[in-house]
Design a binder for these strands. Structure first.
Lengths: 201, 201
DNA sequence: AGCTGGCCGTGACACCTGTCATCCGGACCG
DNA sequence: CGGTCCGGATGACAGGTGTCACGGCCAGCT
């Protein structure tokens, strides 16, 4: 019997996944959480062996949660699930210590198999995503550029961003200009979207 | 036995919801589709009585799909499910002929009850969302403003938007300026986000 | 000790954007 | 019929934005 922890911020999806996986006779959902920063504690308390982690979560995202699990509970394996593409996430998830990476677009029947493989110590990675992540390569952005791009995601004016990060307005423009060049965009909003799509944020 | 159709673009979520609802002895999932424009045909072929529709779908969104079901299959009821807030969606979903509106944040156990109520001819609406939709009121945007805002969602420059809709650059700026005023924003990106959050797009 | 590269800042310049005033045509309504 | 509203357009102006050149600081590497 494989003991599972589910982490997803949407209660309905979480409950539905639990129903799906509980149908398997060799799987048992022993914990469910809706926030990334509750994963480690719940996994420890419930004695989970595999954690199914969504990326988009309040508190702590799924990748950082996988890293925390890796650090605090070395024997527990993580399987990261996310909504779509975002090839860059694959690389970061694996580097964070996740054993698998699955998109929510895969057929439901394959999920249980992915869990079993991860539990057995194998790596499970969506082949299409793996290929894309190799094509795009790692992020060329510096830490500052990444930080500023995340603040530019919602289209905030430069002045606002500069105030939030306590930098000069000109400096922010320079960093963002560099990021625009590296992403091949022409606007900071466009650069931010491209970077996010590639998982560089 | 209530015959159900599931529509969600993410196969994993779709399958999981099917597993969840099939656990109920009085419910039966008779059709699953991943696109909005396949809903009516699948509902007709399978003899579904209630359609569970996600809003974000390729082809046709859940609200328009509900309207199509209403028009083509008057006896079939629709229950719209979406990821979060977006109060304006509630109003539009109901106007489109949906019998219910549920967010993916609700506990999994309540979903089956919502389906039963909708099947019985009752209206099911998340109370928090209903309250918010009353506070925000209907969209004050004109059709043009709405159209231009959707093109402004990704942060495209005015020139690009003008070319896409075959309008003068100045006209686009004027409409967007009006939209910015109505949303209380200071940038077209911000206005676009606000309008989307309120379901005005 | 030099070189490199990231980070921070300034200044200048061309261009883009948001706002306002003003105009015209059509549709709708009292 | 006149009033009102929306769509479309123009022109002008202040302020925001992207780019570039330049300088300075610091860490790491040769």
């Amino acid at each position: 019997m494989i003991r599972l922890l589910l982490a997803d911020d949407q209660a309905l999806v979480r409950g539905a996944l639990a129903a799906l996986l509980d149908l398997e006779t060799d799987l048992e959902v022993v914990a469910q959480v809706g926030r990334g920063d509750e994963v480690v504690e719940a996994a420890r308390a419930s004695g989970a062996e595999v954690c199914l982690l969504d990326i988009e979560m309040p508190g702590l995202n799924g990748i950082d949660a996988a890293a925390a699990v890796r650090r605090e509970l070395p024997g527990v394996r993580s399987l990261v699930v996310t909504t779509f593409g975002r090839p860059g996430y694959v690389r970061r998830a694996i580097e964070a210590g996740a054993s698998g990476f699955v998109v929510k677009d895969t057929p439901a029947r394959q999920l249980a198999d992915a869990v079993r493989r991860v539990h057995a110590g194998l790596r499970v990675i969506d082949p299409d995503l793996a290929a894309e992540s190799l094509i795009d390569g790692p992020s060329p952005l510096t830490d500052r550029e990444r930080e500023l791009l995340t603040h530019a995601l919602d289209g905030s004016p430069v002045a606002t961003i500069a105030a939030r990060v306590h930098l000069s307005e000109g400096t922010v423009r320079n960093h963002l200009s560099a990021a625009i060049g590296k992403t091949g965009a022409t606007t900071r909003s466009e650069a931010a979207r491209i970077a996010q799509d590639r998982g560089w944020l």
